[in-house]
Nucleic acid binder design. Sequence first.
DNA 1: CTGTTTCTTGCATGAATAGGCAAAACATGC
DNA 2: GCATGTTTTGCCTATTCATGCAAGAAACAG
Lengths: 252, 252
Amino acid sequence: MLTEERHQLIRDQLAADGKVLAGELASRFGVSEDTVRRDLRELAKAGQLRRVYGGAVASAPFAAATLSQRSGHAVEEKTRLAKAAVGLLVAGQSLFIDGGTTNEAIARAIPRDMELTIATNSLGVASALADRPLVELIVLGGRYVPELGTCVGADTLAAVAQLGADLFFLGSCGLDAARGVTAFDSAEAEVKRAMAKNSAGIVIAVTNDKLATAAPYRVAGADAIRHLVVEKTAPAATLADFQSQGAQIHFA
Amino acid sequence: MLTEERHQLIRDQLAADGKVLAGELASRFGVSEDTVRRDLRELAKAGQLRRVYGGAVASAPFAAATLSQRSGHAVEEKTRLAKAAVGLLVAGQSLFIDGGTTNEAIARAIPRDMELTIATNSLGVASALADRPLVELIVLGGRYVPELGTCVGADTLAAVAQLGADLFFLGSCGLDAARGVTAFDSAEAEVKRAMAKNSAGIVIAVTNDKLATAAPYRVAGADAIRHLVVEKTAPAATLADFQSQGAQIHFA
DNA sequence: CTGTTTCTTGCATGAATAGGCAAAACATGC
DNA sequence: GCATGTTTTGCCTATTCATGCAAGAAACAG
């Protein structure tokens, strides 16, 4: 195994998990811990990670975001959903991705060697994609809302209006077969509606607790959902309702 | 087998796998490792791959290195500059902050209890400010440039045109008393000019190595600089030139 | 404070590499 | 055909590089 390969794998795991352990890497790569430590030292010197006792953590300005999110809720489920959702992608597509921790997990799960054009109003998603060399990243600016982690407002809407996408990864929403997709904030709903209007298909990845819940602001009908990515344990009855309205169900 | 044939096969495998091993290629082509190494050397000289011990990898699309490399450099100096620069702020002001690692340090140094309105086209700056409860953050979207860590383009310019600020923290630039403020990229320079035009004063914080250097694209004259934050060890003669054109000098 | 884990440093070893050299393959002109 | 010059290739040698090991230092946990 090339030294450079190890470095790349370490960078990848840092981007995905926010941390690496020296011993774990050593056994994974089949080299001594000394070698791994040397790797970590070099990467640290290049500013690509921050050395800590036992391993290393991401050092980028985005480390905080990544880490704080890791400590959040239902991380494993979201990572599984993300991996399944990424399976829907085809190289060369253009995407809208809006906010939410699941969407951030999806952004991190996008392979580094896939060429895509991605427009997002989420800082977390943008940060996760910032170092993907093959991703043409378009940041949708506007007034930043800390509670959502996304930009909203007239500027955001204007930027969305100029773009089109094959798929729209719609996140942080309520989901109900009867009421469709709903959002918790008026301005956020406006942006979601604009993205939905300008994209060919909507993809929604949700954990079970979001299924069959509704928020005040209506974004789109359930029949607008092209792909629904859910946990294996999702209630079959609910899924059938969405399926009957045209959604393809994908299990993580 | 023709030399050119081997070169093409090497390029093919690099595109497919991202790496090649010298020994493996030698046995596959039925030539000595020396010949393969010569091939790799030539291709590396032509910039088509990056030579590493044991073989070669796909040439770095620059993005990974450029920004993160810089972030590792002169961290302490930049932190000191940032603390001094933050001293110029007054609660209630509105700011433009553009890209560069020094500006990211400044963003991190902004006290959490200070109320400000901040517009930025830098993902790093935006991420640093995302959790400041009293900062009204406006993200200036556009096409993201990995090498700069900022958004540029028509969308960015349009967003800047709608805003005004008391201070503009101008970063990642060349600085020369005669040529003024210069940028390394045409689109970047455009955004900086727009921000300069719409702000009442320009603040520049630079490490010594940026002083008395010039880049291709002109942003503003030296007389446009209101505040110049420099290291204590900055050469006095250079500082005098800026001072005579109206800049206030602040030592970190 | 004590023991354990992790980290750095120096060193030895083997693999990979660059440069020099000569033979072979190839092209070119007579 | 023959002679000449060029290019390619493989081999040899000195050097550089990556790695693991050992010893001492530092960080951590109890």
